[in-house]
């Protein structure tokens, strides 16, 4: 397994991401990953905060139109995240923080799916008065994205980490 990971890490692409002085390598990939984070957490955060009572003039149903933007940000980050991962995969996969981040991304996506089915389609989306369950889902989603962002940033600081930040 370790040999396999090292092979990935030593590949031309992973070396380029890690070592190239070009700003199109690590710096730009990280920049796009950050923009993607802003899109995913921004759209999801806005929807959650609306359910929790902020910006009461906004109807929930039209906010669904922004979900494709969220998914665009998600796939951009899945791709850029994989690119960043290859550059020091053997360290990352031995860092518990990395698994915390992945687990909370998975929970966030499950929460998003539940909310899309149960909250967006429900009568409460029209009235703007949300049930305790919907509000709990929104709080849980906010908390999960907070953990994802924090654990992602801390990948550069905790466990086995490289000098790449």
């Amino acid at each position: 397994m370790n040999e396999f990971l090292q092979n990935i890490e030593q590949s031309g692409f992973a070396s380029w991401v890690r070592e190239s002085p070009s700003i199109f390598a690590f710096p730009s990939i990280l920049l796009v990953h950050t923009i993607g984070m802003g899109i995913v957490a921004g759209i999801s955060g806005g929807i959650n905060l609306r359910i929790l009572g902020m910006a009461p003039a906004i109807k929930l149903a039209p906010l669904q139109r922004f979900l494709p933007v969220l998914w665009f940000g998600f796939w951009v980050n899945a791709i850029t995240g994989t690119m960043l991962l290859t550059s020091d995969v053997s360290l990352k996969l031995h860092n518990p923080d990395f698994y915390i981040k992945m687990a909370f991304i998975a929970i966030s996506l499950i929460l998003l799916r539940i909310m899309r089915n149960d909250v967006f389609g429900s009568p409460e989306a029209e009235t703007g008065k949300f049930s305790t369950r919907s509000k709990m889902l929104a709080w849980a989603s906010l908390f999960c994205w907070l953990v994802v962002i924090t654990s992602g940033r801390l990948l550069a600081y905790v466990g086995n980490y490289s000098n790449l930040k």
């Binding site: 802003g38 921004g42 922004f66 962002i149 924090t150």
Partner: peptide
């Protein structure tokens, strides 16, 4: 420093709520 960096990214996401919508 890492705490402030994490908060800096959380702040960025909050900023993006307004910027995006």
């Amino acid at each position: 420093w890492p705490t402030c960096e994490s908060l800096h990214f959380v702040g960025l996401s909050l900023l993006f709520v307004a910027v995006l919508f």
